[in-house]
Computed example of a mutant assay.
Amino acid sequence: MFAFSGFNGFGQFGHNRQRSGNAFTDICLKKLMTEQQSTSLIAVSWSYAAYATENKLVLRGFLSSKPNTTICVQTAEIITQLAACDRFCLVLCKNGKLFKIRPEIEAKLEEVKLEVEVHSFTQKRSIFGEPKSTVNKEECFIVTHIACGSNITAAVSATNAVYSVPSKIHQFAKHFRVRQLICGFEHALLLSANGDIYSWGNGLYEICFLSLKCSSLVHTYFLYLQISFIAAGGWHSAAISAFGDLYTWGFNSNGQLGLRLFKITAAGNIKQPTVFTLPQIVEIPECKCMQAKDSTMCDEITQNEDATGECLPVRVYAGARHTLLQMKCGALCTAGWNAHDQLGIGHKVDYCDEFRKIESFEGKVAEGSIVCGAWCTVIAKKS
């Protein structure tokens, strides 16, 4: 079961009203999926939403310039990942093949072919000229991670090749492991299993520590910290360190970094910078679970405390101009633009330049099942 808050002007979430009304509203999928099927994947664009379960894909919303439109497509293999932008939806299947489908009524799945450089097949040879190992060319076309934004599409193959689809832009070593791959509107972030961040794309707002457009990866030495989770918004980025600290950087036009737009001083309010070129550590309000005295919560609180007795952030997600934070106890906090009620905080404000707890969401969040669209937030509930 999914719940959403935010823009719904094209019926992508199955409701007639354009917004969720300052609170999270359940998404009804009974007409799309059978009783035996349960939607496990969702990807959200500005104008449509993509739902997938096993080998069934559903697009709903603004298709072929018509709102409240739905199409269903069957795939030969089980769908494992989805990524959506305004122009198309990426579909990754269990066999590692990558497809895309356009938001059109008569659309069909199109296989995405990746370019592979010839020298990627070079082999080490013995002094007698015999190859030491056999290179499986098919592995170069097996995709393991996908992400896309308005103007950027990224993928990682089983051989640790990184693509700005369809072109190969970097080759990591064999032992390298990818933990996360995400895209903003114009930039991409990659998190390794070692906690290192790599970035590429348009650095107009310093979203990837660049001052100009860069087509190759740049290793971000993130204050010598190990990073456990990352997020890429429209023109801003966020990261959580292994110590539970939240860092944000980039565009802060609507407080999406969780930083005040105006600094209060004795002389009056001083406007803060709109763009933060370096990562800023963000102060998170104390989680209410640490103040709770209800005996029914004791076990859960004890389980989610760290060594210092604090409830720390564990995951972060980002939309066009808003950011959502998931605490260790399961509580959700959010900051940023709220013109379409995408924050879901329960009352109407234009923006929020500090993190506030989401009070309108009822239930527990399924692990790793939060998606921030450009103007909305979608959360999967635990059954």
Rank of each mutant, 00 (worst) to 15 (best):
14 G>V: 02
261 L>F: 01
289 C>Y: 11
291 Q>F: 03
113 K>A: 08
20 S>E: 03
337 W>D: 02
102 R>Q: 06
146 I>N: 05
165 V>H: 06
74 Q>K: 10
318 A>E: 03
186 E>N: 11
179 R>C: 06
106 E>R: 09
233 G>S: 14
274 T>A: 02
74 Q>T: 11
204 L>K: 15
203 G>H: 04
357 K>V: 08
130 E>C: 08
112 V>T: 09
13 F>L: 05
208 C>Y: 07
48 Y>M: 13
197 I>K: 03
133 S>L: 04
61 G>P: 08
338 N>I: 09
205 Y>G: 03
180 Q>G: 03
283 E>V: 07
137 K>S: 15
271 K>S: 14
132 K>G: 00
25 T>Y: 00
41 L>V: 07
293 K>A: 00
157 S>Y: 05
319 G>A: 07
303 Q>I: 06
379 I>S: 00
301 I>E: 02
298 C>T: 13
168 K>E: 12
100 K>W: 03
272 Q>A: 13
120 S>K: 14
144 T>I: 08
176 F>N: 00
207 I>R: 13
124 K>R: 13
59 L>K: 06
238 A>P: 08
109 L>K: 04
80 T>K: 15
152 I>M: 05
338 N>V: 09
357 K>L: 09
259 L>P: 05
346 G>L: 10
349 V>F: 01
47 S>H: 10
374 A>S: 09
242 A>H: 07
